[in-house]
């Protein structure tokens, strides 16, 4: 995508990048891109795997491509989105092949390396043949990343893997020639395989993030029926022009944004605006593209098309929010950035110490070299690749059991840190469907329900449902008529009734309206017989959860597109003190961003809980997006966590699950590094024998896996 900014020749270009696996990769590509003549600024995002480059004049794509290639990655320029998807799918497939092949090879190498355990004695040359592809084909990316890292003067987990496995591999080759003793082909192969497996699981989870946008695009109508010269013709959506008159029939989607010029209808806008009740639309009212026409047929004039429609704006916001999401700071990488240089220095110190103080050697300093390699091998924590993925896997499995679907690991990591939680109103705090809440006199229900049988009004459905529940006997209605915008009327027996908007409002009606309820009255002639109030009701358990969150010192907010009165009524019922009402769908994400920055030098970690399409940008913009499973697919795709369980308490469960999982991850990393840290001095002083090294490797891996499995037993 190219955006020209201003009359000068400043050009902005964004393109996807493939092959990044940590935040430092992004920094490296940025550096490489800014070195290209003509490039003023480059910003690379690890989360969205894309680069934005600001250039003076037009720098050729080849130059940009080769700059990225020099850094060790691939840029996809001048290709459609599909090819980016294809590239990603290809990469995932490649990784899968590597995991499968290296698993098989490593297993054979492992079994063959321990004849005393498995009784199979394999020739060292055979082990070398099997271990070589694992080391240099499956593990090649680690070498590339290490090289890139060194050019950036950083050490990451990759450096550690390359150092440890290469030391083990080349030491084993020397051992084949009798220079030293002991074989470590198995160590090298197993470490690479386990870490690749962890990477594969992570990449697979990450590949779903663009589904939300695909779903949003799928919501658009494909065609529009335009009215021209008295004829109606179906044309593709892309051919619709501003000012075109478009016919929409019942059950169809409104193709673009516009204003009704003829006819009227009820339109279900809940997908876009979050408004729970279908909205009554008459001539002059504006309609939103992709909403569903419920009852009537109407003609409207297109006012906004293409990228200007509300849905397109929402798509843009979701894209933006997803790409600005902060990259996950990997704990292992952070530890490695200190750990690796220290280990390197220790290994040199070991060599010097043994050379100067050790037994006198003539020719090759065997002891000093053996102990240098021992330090490097033992420093490479085999279990490190398992520490996070196993805990996340068990944690997400446990969550799924309880109806908490975790889409990306980052959300599970973040949710326990939240100190502000924002709830959408409709469908999240409330049930999202209108229900009868008050009936002034039970006798009027028979008449109202009988009248409503012929009505298409959405509130009518709520009254009919209520009447059936109360086992009301329906009566025959004649001369039924719906008066758009007012109500319905009909004759039962010989009496004429009207049911609809109240013309005069008494105290009791005003009080109900203040509670956010819609009140309708039944009249016989001029005499008012009674009223029925309908409202969207609060879900069970909301109040308890809000109180619990506040006890945990989490600030609770409610944000809604609904009017102040309804918002306040629901907030009062649920015990929420902070309310943002009349927030337009496009402003919800903005409000979340404001909340994130509002703190006085205190970092706010904001979670957003929502269900509608209008919530998608906010779900993506929040530190953690939590979607209600009863909501739309798009909301679920934009969120990091989906609560399938109707029980509102699952929000608390998700927070607890995150806490437990993070605790386990930290413990795992401790075990993964711990064994090795303890054994480094042993290796440096020449006390380490191969059996002890193998034992440490196996013990740290087993303790990490067992510790992760402990999550299954923890009560959340």
């Amino acid at each position: 995508m190219i955006i020209k900014t201003g009359p000068t020749s400043l050009v902005k270009k964004s393109f996807p990048i493939v092959g990044m696996h940590c935040a430092s990769c992004a920094r490296l590509i940025e550096k490489s891109l800014t070195r290209v003549p003509g490039v003023l600024n480059a910003s690379v995002n690890y989360g969205s795997e894309s680069a934005v480059v600001e250039m003076e004049g037009n720098v050729s794509d080849t130059k940009l491509e080769s700059a990225v290639k020099n850094a060790g990655y691939r840029a996809i320029l001048n290709k459609s989105n599909l090819s980016k998807e294809e590239e990603k799918a290809k990469e995932l497939k490649n990784l899968k092949t590597k995991v499968i092949v290296s698993s098989i090879l490593s297993l054979i190498v492992f079994v063959g390396s321990f004849p005393e355990w498995f009784g199979i004695n394999l020739n060292p040359i055979f082990l070398l043949v099997l271990a070589t592809p694992v080391q240099f084909w499956a593990g090649w990316d680690f070498y590339l990343a290490t090289w890139s890292g060194l050019r950036n003067r950083t050490a990451s987990m990759d450096t550690l893997i390359v150092m440890g496995t290469s030391a083990a591999f080349f030491y084993s080759i020397l051992s084949m020639f009798g220079v030293v003793e002991g074989m470590y082909f198995d160590t090298a192969a197993v470490i690479i395989t386990l870490i690749l497996l962890g990477r594969f699981l992570e990449a697979k989870a990450k590949s779903h993030t663009s589904d939300a946008i695909k779903k949003l695009l799928g919501l658009q109508a494909k065609t529009a029926r335009i009215v021209k010269d008295g004829r109606e013709i179906d044309i593709p959506l892309a051919d619709v022009k501003v000012g075109d008159l478009i016919r929409v029939r019942p059950g169809e989607k409104v193709p673009v944004d516009g204003v009704i010029t003829r006819g009227s209808s009820f339109i279900d806008e809940s997908m876009v605006t979050g408004e729970s009740l279908p909205v009554d639309k008459i001539v002059g009212a504006s309609v939103i593209g992709s909403t569903i026409n419920k009852s009537g047929s109407f003609i409207f004039k297109a006012t906004k098309i293409g990228s200007e429609t509300m849905l397109s704006q929402i798509i843009e916001m979701v894209k933006e929010a997803q790409s600005t999401k902060a990259p996950i700071a990997r704990m292992a990488d952070l530890v490695s950035s200190y750990f690796v240089p220290i280990v390197l220095m220790l290994s040199i110190l070991t060599f010097v110490g043994w050379y100067v103080l050790g037994p006198i050697t003539i020719g090759f300093p065997v002891n000093a070299f053996i102990n240098l390699v021992a330090v490097l091998i033992i420093a490479c924590p085999c279990a490190m690749g398992l520490a996070t993925p196993t805990a996340i896997m068990v944690g997400t499995g446990k969550g799924a059991e309880k109806g908490i679907l975790v889409k990306d690991a980052a959300s599970l990591e973040t949710v326990h840190k939240i100190n502000t939680i924002v709830f959408d109103k409709t469908g999240t705090l409330t049930k999202g469907i209108p229900m009868v809440t008050d009936v002034s006199d039970p006798k009027i229900l028979t008449i109202v329900a009988s009248l409503e049988q012929g009505s298409e009004h959405p509130l009518g459905g709520a009254i009919l449902g209520y009447a059936m529940e109360k086992k009301v006997k329906f009566q025959k209605v004649t001369n039924f008529r719906a008066i758009t915008g007012f109500g319905i009327e009909g004759i039962i027996g010989s009496k004429k009734y009207f049911f609809g908007k109240p013309d005069k409002k008494g105290e009791s009606i005003k009080k109900l309206e203040d509670e956010g309820k819609t009140v309708m009255i039944l009249k016989q002639g001029v005499k008012t017989l009674g009223f029925i109030a309908v409202a969207d009701t609060l879900k069970e358990g909301v109040k308890g959860v809000v109180k619990h969150l506040e006890n945990k010192k989490i600030e609770v907010w409610m944000v809604t597109g609904d009017n102040q009165r309804t918002a306040k009524a629901i907030a009062k019922l649920s015990g929420i003190k902070n309310v943002l009402a009349e927030v337009l769908p496009e402003d919800k994400a903005q409000k979340i961003k404001e909340l994130k920055n509002v703190a006085f030098k205190v970092t706010k970690c904001v979670a957003f809980v929502g269900d509608g399409i209008n919530d998608a940008p906010a779900l993506a913009a929040a530190d953690v997006g939590i979607a209600m499973g009863t909501g739309t697919d798009v909301a679920m795709e934009s969120a990091g966590i989906t609560l399938l369980n109707k029980d509102f308490k699952s929000i608390l469960m998700a927070i607890n699950l995150s806490k437990s999982t993070m605790k386990i991850i930290k413990q795992n990393l401790f075990w993964a590094f711990g064994y090795n840290v303890i054994l480094i001095p042993a290796a440096a002083f020449g006390l380490l024998n191969p059996m002890l090294a193998s034992f440490a490797m196996a013990a740290s891996s087993i303790s990490v896996v067992l510790n992760s499995l402990r999550l299954n037993k923890i009560k959340i």
């Binding site: 050490a155 240089p341 040199i348 060599f351 010097v352 100067v356």
Partner: peptide
Amino acid sequence: MSPDKLLVTVGGLGLMGFIWWFFFEKKHDN
């Protein structure tokens, strides 16, 4: 101390210093 041991000691310390400088004393150019 024999000349070879002195050489290894000085070389080793130099290498350690280089590693320290390479990884920790940096990023002034960012």
